[in-house]
Structures are given as structure tokens and as C-alpha cells.
């Protein structure tokens, strides 16, 4: 009698487990494998009841998004809690001291045909005023962005 009860009980457990699908441990491994296959590193995975929690520090937001998408793509994962943080960004350094940067900007703007733009540089941050032809506007903004500046106050206007 006792043996019979035990057998029924064991069968019930076995049935229950197979109906449930993969265990959390299996899912953790599957998520880790998927992250490795997608070349995402620095992520710690914990799965509980089919919900994956991602922790750790990654390079930038694109890696954070990619890790989440990878984990979601694993069969059996119901939801993903994305607790990944992004590495602090180092402080940007201007490419040159203010007077040299001003000269560099003026040369580049002149070369790009943006003579109407007036720049003032303070600690690498550029305040740009003046007016340039509308068709040149994007080029002028690009030129300023590419000089190695660390901040911008854009008050440039579009003329004809």
C-alpha cells in the first residue's frame, strides 16, 4: 500500500515537472548561452519562475538593449527585468585650449562656407550665433561638432 502511494506520488511529481517545461536553472544556462552567442559580456543572469533578471555594468545603452532582447528571445523566458547599468562616461576633453579651438573653428567654418557663424569658446564649450544660408545650416553644425568641442549652445539662425 505504502509503495503504491509512493509510486503514484512520484509519477505525479514527474508529470508536474514535465508539464512545467524547463527549470529555472536550465533557463539561466540558456540565457547565458544566448548572451554569449550574441557577444554580450558583463551580464549576470538570475531566473526565477521564468523571469530573468539582468544585472551588471555594460558599455552603453545599445548593449543594455541588446542583452534584454537576447534574454527575451530565449524560449521559456516570460519576462525580463533589465537592471543593467551603464558604465560612467569619462569626462570629454576639448581638442585644444580655448584660443586655439576658436582659431580652429573659424578656419574650419571659413573652409565650409559658414562665414556668417560667430563662435565664442569657453572651457571647450562653444556658443554659436550669427546666420548662415539655410542650405548650409547642417554643414555648419557638423563642422562645429567635429572640432573637438565639449559643449554647444546653438543659437545659429538660418538665413537665405
Amino acid at each position: 500500500m505504502k509503495i503504491k502511494v509512493l509510486t503514484v506520488f512520484t509519477l505525479a511529481i514527474a508529470l508536474f515537472l514535465s508539464a512545467c517545461g524547463k527549470s529555472d536553472a536550465d533557463l539561466t544556462k540558456a540565457v547565458n548561452d544566448k548572451l554569449a552567442a550574441d557577444k554580450v559580456t558583463g551580464v549576470t543572469v538570475a531566473v526565477k519562475d521564468g523571469v530573468a533578471t539582468l544585472t551588471g555594468e555594460v558599455g552603453d545603452i545599445t548593449v543594455k538593449n541588446k542583452a534584454e532582447a537576447s534574454a527575451k528571445a530565449v524560449e521559456g523566458i516570460k519576462n525580463v527585468t533589465n537592471n543593467l547599468t551603464m558604465k560612467p562616461r569619462p569626462a570629454a576633453t576639448p581638442s585644444a585650449p580655448d584660443p586655439a579651438l576658436t582659431a580652429k573653428l573659424n578656419d574650419a567654418l571659413k573652409a565650409a562656407g559658414c562665414t556668417g557663424a560667430i563662435v565664442a569658446v569657453e572651457n571647450g564649450k562653444v556658443t554659436v550665433t550669427g546666420e548662415v544660408p539655410g542650405a548650409k545650416y547642417v554643414t555648419c553644425i557638423q563642422t562645429i561638432n567635429q572640432a573637438g568641442i565639449t559643449g554647444i549652445e546653438n543659437k545659429l539662425t538660418k538665413g537665405k
Binding site: K125, T150, G151
Partner: peptide
């Protein structure tokens, strides 16, 4: 983020740093 995703897709290598007052600097 969509700009950075695009950079990853089209083969642009980049580094991020922090400029004046939280400005995102993409080099």
C-alpha cells in the same frame, strides 16, 4: 539610442564621453 544602434549597424566605431552639463559626446 537609435542613433547609437545605427552606428553599431553601419560599422561606425565610437566612444562616449561626458561634456559640459551632461552633454553626450560621441567621437
Amino acid at each position: 539610442q537609435s542613433l547609437l544602434e545605427l552606428a553599431n549597424q553601419n560599422g561606425t566605431s565610437y566612444e562616449l564621453s561626458e561634456g559640459d552639463n551632461g552633454t553626450l559626446v560621441v567621437t
